[in-house]
Design a protein around this nucleic acid. Structure first.
Lengths: 145, 145
DNA sequence: GTAACTGCAAAATATTTGCATCCTT
DNA sequence: AAGGATGCAAATATTTTGCAGTTAC
């Protein structure tokens, strides 16, 4: 019987292959961090959690690659620390379909993708043509309340 | 009869005084840039438009001060270049009431505050308590269409 | 006159690039 | 074997801090 650990390992490799990426140690490790975290991670978070194992530069390049391939998406925040989170399957390279909102907890600082909350329709003023709507909600998360 | 230029100069000085800030050259100049621009400015934009006149450090500090006093508010974007825009009068130090949405034009890259578009109500999942909602819309602005 | 603001220098931090080496396929 | 990925060194860019001189009030 396949162990859970093996299962995750397979998922990770499959995800990378699906996006035409070679399966390397750093990519596996960083992808695993995202799977473990569920929430969003900033570059700095990854550095801390990955230990001394990887070069900073590799993290930059890996995040960039994941972004381009649509494996992760970025969440802009007011503190100039971009966070990244896993995309759902329907995301594809260069074209994200993540119509969910993001939530940042002011207490624990974690960033969540609230997949069940769809971004609302926004009625734009005459002349403005919207192509993408990003909603970031701040407050207190369910764990901190 | 009072000239328009004088009028603007007075507005700038009045704004600074209202927030208990001394009226200095750099503050006047940076505030003027925001008034001229209408849209949002990133640190880099201010540096370019101010000419060689001010030290980078002064711009950092002035923006920080304006933020704290509620003269400007920040708009997070995906490219890690925070933009700032003037607050409406009802903003006060540390407590922003800017319930409008922001619009970034993918063509001219300008950032607008759409003061007439109120941020929608978001129905949060059980347990999450929202305190602030930030909406950033991307697309093509009225001038670029 | 005094407190606050600015410019300069320098430190600390963050990001990008080039290249030789190593790993995946 | 070949192309791509990584690590290291170094170049750039960004942001912060300390301090002495200057300015606003």
């Amino acid at each position: 019987m396949m162990s859970l650990a093996n299962n995750i390992t397979q998922t990770i490799a499959a995800t990378l292959k699906k996006h035409n990426l070679s399966v390397t140690e750093s990519r596996k490790r960083i992808l695993q961090l995202f799977l473990e975290e569920k929430g969003a991670l900033a570059h700095g978070d990854i550095e801390k959690r990955a230990g001394e194992k990887f070069d900073r530069v590799t993290i930059y390049r890996t995040l960039q690659t994941f972004l381009e391939k649509g494996i992760i998406h970025s969440i802009p925040t007011a503190d100039n620390a971009i966070r990244y989170a896993l995309c759902k399957d329907q995301c594809s390279a260069g074209h994200h379909h993540d119509h969910h909102i993001h939530f940042i907890c002011n207490n624990c600082q974690r960033t969540y993708c609230l997949d069940d909350v769809v971004t609302p329709e926004i009625k734009m003023p005459k002349g403005y043509q919207a192509s993408h709507v990003e909603v970031v909600v701040e407050g207190v998360c369910k764990d901190c309340k």
